[in-house]
Simulated scan of single mutants.
Amino acid sequence: MAATHRLAARLAGVLRPGDLVGLSGDLGAGKSELARAVIRARAGAEIEVPSPTFTLLQIYELRDLLIGHADLYRLGDPDEVRTLGLEDVVERGALLVEWPEHAEHLPGDPLMLTLQETERPNARRLRIDASAGWADRMRTLQP
């Protein structure tokens, strides 16, 4: 979990308006933990960050950046994404989306993170797929 928090701190430091961070992986892979750690790192405090599993979208108006945290796991139809107002969030800030594969299209400049469990307990493998808009920030995300 320490590595997850270090990645979250680096990611929180480079987030900017228009960013979309997709968090994929199996149940229990650490998507929610990573999202919480990013939000808390950007807030600079151990704020409460409840899971958006049932609310679908939580908004955090932090001192220098609005961050939306969405969980699309429970969506039955990709068209339901349009009703969440994710475009508005990306226009005003950054968006963290768990289960982005449940949507046909998401707004913003995407950075896709896929977490996979490994044979070692509490260890994860991370795959990063970044759009061109992240090129200047990718070095910062490397351990």
Rank of each mutant, 00 (worst) to 15 (best):
A94V: 00
I128C: 07
V81I: 10
A9F: 09
G13E: 10
L27G: 05
P52L: 05
D109Q: 15
P52K: 04
E46G: 09
P17E: 04
W99D: 03
E87T: 06
L113V: 14
V89T: 05
L57A: 04
D26L: 12
P121A: 12
A123S: 10
D26R: 11
I39F: 06
A135L: 14
G93Q: 03
H69I: 07
Y60A: 07
P17W: 01
A43E: 08
S24G: 11
A123P: 09
R92T: 05
Y60E: 09
L72H: 01
H69V: 06
L72V: 01
P143S: 12
L126G: 12
L23Y: 01
V21Y: 01
S51D: 11
L84E: 05
A103E: 03
D26E: 15
L7F: 15
A2S: 13
L86F: 03
P50L: 03
I39Y: 03
D136V: 14
R16F: 04
H105I: 14
R120V: 13
L111V: 02
A35D: 03
L57Y: 02
A103T: 00
D26V: 11
V38S: 05
E33C: 14
R120W: 09
V89G: 03
A132S: 14
L15D: 00
W134L: 05
G108H: 00
L96K: 02
R40Q: 13
D64E: 13
G68C: 08
V38N: 00
E48R: 14
R63A: 12
T114P: 05
D71M: 01
A132T: 15
L126W: 10
L23P: 00
S24I: 10
G13C: 10
R36E: 04
Y60M: 09
A130D: 03
G44Y: 07
L96A: 02
R124D: 12
L115N: 02
E61R: 13
G13N: 11
A3N: 12
L65Q: 00
E104G: 14
L20P: 02
L23A: 04
D26M: 08
L15K: 02
H105C: 14
P100M: 08
A37K: 03
V89L: 08
S131I: 07
R74M: 02
F54N: 09
L23H: 03
G133L: 08
E48Q: 12
D88S: 14
T4G: 10
I47V: 12
D109Y: 13
L84V: 08
L95S: 01
L56Q: 02
R42Q: 11
H105P: 04
E91Q: 12
Y73Q: 01
L20D: 00
T114F: 10
A35N: 06
T140A: 10
